[in-house]
Design a protein around this nucleic acid. Structure first.
Lengths: 66, 66
DNA sequence: AAAAAATGTCAAGTACACTTTGCATATTTT
DNA sequence: AAAATATGCAAAGTGTACTTGACATTTTTT
């Protein structure tokens, strides 16, 4: 699923490692989300959105669903 | 994870079966979410929220995270 | 230019979201 | 009260989110 994670991360000038630690997953998980290898779980989506002070819907792109 | 799914479904006077069909999962999945057997995927959470014309954050309870 | 930090990827393993089928009980409708 | 509909649950299977560890390449810093 497309998302603004990479763009938000760059705006905040933090590495994948820093974001990973902040939301309590491995760096590999962040890489996979940014490269659209798979879709975040609901809880991880929430943690990432909250980290950037945004809503889930603001971070993830649901336009291609259904 | 706690959610307002059951309450919203009753407000809308639809069965688990109807909601399941609307969001393209089995009735068992809806039962499991309502009984907190597991947490919806991001995509399913979105579909359910959209069905009720709400945001994901309005339907699911993230207050117990972290 | 060299060193350090950041990123992408691969492979194998674990945990859990979701399916399918089927049955038992509860609730609603007739 | 009987019939129909709705709900809860169990067990076994599939797919995928996420982990771990390790390596190669790119980007940034010195």
């Amino acid at each position: 699923m497309k998302s603004k994670i990479k763009a938000l991360r760059k705006q905040h000038r933090i590495s994948q490692d820093e974001l990973a630690e902040a939301v309590d997953v491995t760096r590999q998980t962040i890489t996979s989300l940014e490269c659209e290898k798979y879709t975040a779980s609901l809880v991880l989506a929430y943690k990432i959105a909250r980290y950037f002070h945004l809503t889930i819907e603001e971070v993830f792109d649901f336009s291609e669903i259904q």
